[in-house]
């Protein structure tokens, strides 16, 4: 079994991607700019994967920035108040994000996909408003505040250490999502997505499992948000912006909805393109280019870039992932 696994093309790809992730920042090309790009890429891989976990259960969100941002605010406030290391507060902040996710979930898990998505969209705006206005004594309103860096910038090679610690957290997040989806929970989520009435008849409680997916997704998105602000060392309410809600959607659709590799591939390809076009001087044109790319992918590759591998490689499609 193990021997077969290591010979499969899928395993080679995973091992190759992991090796690239380890070696890349050590190459001579990896200056501070490249390292920053790679770090943000990892953060968005975590974030997009969290969003994608939600779609696996047939739910959708257009306001995931709410959880991304809440993770950031909660983690940084805890870090500042308690003096704990960001490495600890990241997970506490994410727990807060998950708790709010659970509350939103409770009010609207009964809504179908895009109705739920609209509620989450509104919710991200509400949170941003609350942070800016009512909570401004703590949050500094639109100005934001400085937060402790993940690794202080006076430590030698701090960006490199930061990269590797975020790399490990990304791997652990993907592993956690993989284990959830492979377990009986993943089976139930897929069944709910495929046919909710039928899932109920088979004895599955959709509300419970949807809430679980919602909460887990909010937790992981919260981790990503906390990592981002502890990387920048600063937080402002712009973290709740519409763009931040839409990036995980774009990444996941480009890579392939409902697959583990989809958000990873999508994030790498789109964010490289995004930064590459900017570097090439196409700062505004890139919106159009990415938009056209998205349209083409939805039309010609509805299951995303990862379906190319299935089409041309020998990786067999599992039963329950693609949608």
């Amino acid at each position: 079994m193990t021997a077969m696994f290591w010979r499969s093309p899928k395993a080679c790809l995973i091992a190759g991607a992991g090796a690239a992730g380890i070696v890349l920042p050590l190459l001579p090309v990896a200056n501070l700019y490249v390292l920053t790009v790679l770090i943000l890429m990892l953060i968005f891989i975590i974030y997009a994967s969290a969003w994608n976990l939600l779609t696996y259960s047939g739910q959708g969100s257009l306001g995931h920035a709410a959880f991304f941002g809440l993770g950031g605010y909660a983690s940084s406030l805890i870090a500042i108040q308690s003096g704990l290391s960001p490495y600890i507060t990241i997970f506490a902040g994410a727990a807060f994000s998950a708790f709010i996710g659970l509350l939103i979930g409770l009010t609207c898990v009964r809504l179908r996909e895009w109705f739920l998505a609209m509620v989450t969209f509104g919710f991200a705006i509400i949170i941003q408003t609350v942070i800016v206005s009512m909570l401004s004594p703590v949050t500094g309103g639109w100005d934001g505040y400085a937060v402790p860096k993940l690794i202080a910038s006076d430590i030698p090679y701090h960006l490199l250490w930061e990269y590797y610690s975020i790399f490990i957290i990304a791997i652990l997040s993907l592993l956690a999502i993989h284990l959830i989806l492979k377990s009986h929970i993943g089976l139930a989520l897929a069944a709910i997505r495929e046919n909710e009435l039928e899932a109920r008849a088979a004895g599955i409680d959709p509300v419970r499992f949807k809430l679980l997916a919602f909460t887990a997704s909010a937790y992981i998105a919260g981790i990503a948000g906390a990592l981002e602000i502890h990387h920048f060392g600063y937080i402002t309410p712009e973290i709740f912006g519409v763009e931040l809600s839409f990036w995980p959607v774009i990444y996941s659709i480009t890579g392939g909805l409902g697959t583990l590799a989809g958000p990873v591939v999508g994030t790498i390809v789109v964010s490289l393109l995004w930064d590459g076009l900017n570097a090439a001087g196409l700062t505004y044109e890139r919106y159009i280019i990415i938009g056209v790319l998205l349209i083409l992918i939805i039309i010609y590759l509805p299951r995303g870039l990862v379906s190319l591998a299935e089409r041309y490689g020998k990786t067999e499609g599992g039963g329950r992932n693609p949608r």
């Binding site: 009986h184 089976l187 139930a188 897929a190 069944a191 495929e194 046919n195 009435l197 039928e198 899932a199 088979a202 004895g203 599955i204 039963g319 329950r320 693609p322 949608r323």
Partner: peptide, 17 residues
């Protein structure tokens, strides 16, 4: 009504869920 995009095995697993 089955779960058409899931395998026979997964459909059976769901029966015992």
């Amino acid at each position: 009504e089955l779960f058409p995009k899931m395998t026979v095995r997964e459909n059976l697993e769901l029966g015992a869920f």
